[in-house]
Design a binder for these strands. Structure first.
Length: 220
DNA sequence: AAGATTTGACCGCG
DNA sequence: CGCGGTCAAATCTT
């Protein structure tokens, strides 16, 4: 009887939560895409000729050392379907934030040479925090087929993204201005089947005693 | 204790 | 010689 009531309440709460978060996610994604398009347009308009020169220079250097690279902008630089190990962090000249260096977690076991760098971009207070992620080499480790990372936007000129951006973040400090709940949300978003996991959480919580203070707050 | 991260040292390139 | 990519010992986390 009590258990049924609790299950129902929890079910409703999670239903509302799911609706809410889905809406928020949708809005963020829409806003985010529009924002990135705008930022790209402004950057391109600002200094196309300088950009061309520097891009060509950087690209030739990078390609000579690493082969092709692919860069992305994303608010969620750490959840891209692969496991990484951080092996370095550097302050980059004229950048406010540091750049972090990651290698594939299976580098030694499987000789996978994939690496990536993550650097937080400059942003004003009206923009959400974004990171430039540059991938070098492809994953050769098994069970990893180098999928396109979720919730990111591929930039047409990889090096230009690095050029105008500014810093990094390690896997532990994660998106610094975000709260713990944001981190969880991002994680779920990028890697999990949302509805299935919500259902699982629901089933677990239905068997857990609820806090009495919360029960007193809910009016029926 | 094992594995992951931090951080200064090292090194190659321009 | 400075920048930035990598190494590896120290430190932290689980």
């Amino acid at each position: 009887m009590m258990a049924d009531l609790r299950s129902e309440l929890v079910s409703q709460l999670f239903g509302n939560l799911q609706d809410c978060t889905s809406k928020a996610i949708s809005e963020l994604q829409t806003h985010h895409r529009a924002q990135m398009i705008d930022i790209d347009r402004r950057r391109l308009a600002a200094n196309i000729s300088d950009c061309k020169k520097v891009c060509a220079k950087k690209k030739s250097r990078i390609n000579s050392r690493y082969g092709d690279s692919t860069s992305y902008m994303t608010p969620v630089p750490h959840y891209d379907g692969h496991q990484w190990r951080k092996y370095g962090q550097k302050t980059i000249k004229n950048s406010k934030h540091q750049r972090c260096y990651y290698r594939c977690a299976y580098k030694h076991e499987q000789n996978c040479m994939a690496t990536k760098t993550v650097q937080q971009q400059e942003h004003n207070t009206t923009e959400s925090v974004m990171y430039t992620v540059v991938y070098y080499s492809h994953h050769t480790c098994k069970a990893n087929t180098d999928p396109a990372p979720p919730h990111i936007i591929e930039t047409s000129t990889p090096q230009s993204a690095m050029m105008s951006s500014d810093s990094i973040i390690g896997s532990q400090e994660i998106v610094s201005p975000h709260t713990g709940s944001h981190k969880i949300l991002e994680n779920e978003l990028a890697t999990l089947q949302w509805t299935e996991d919500m259902q699982e959480l629901l089933e677990k919580l239905a068997d857990v005693p609820l806090d009495s203070d919360i029960w007193e707050m809910v009016q029926f």
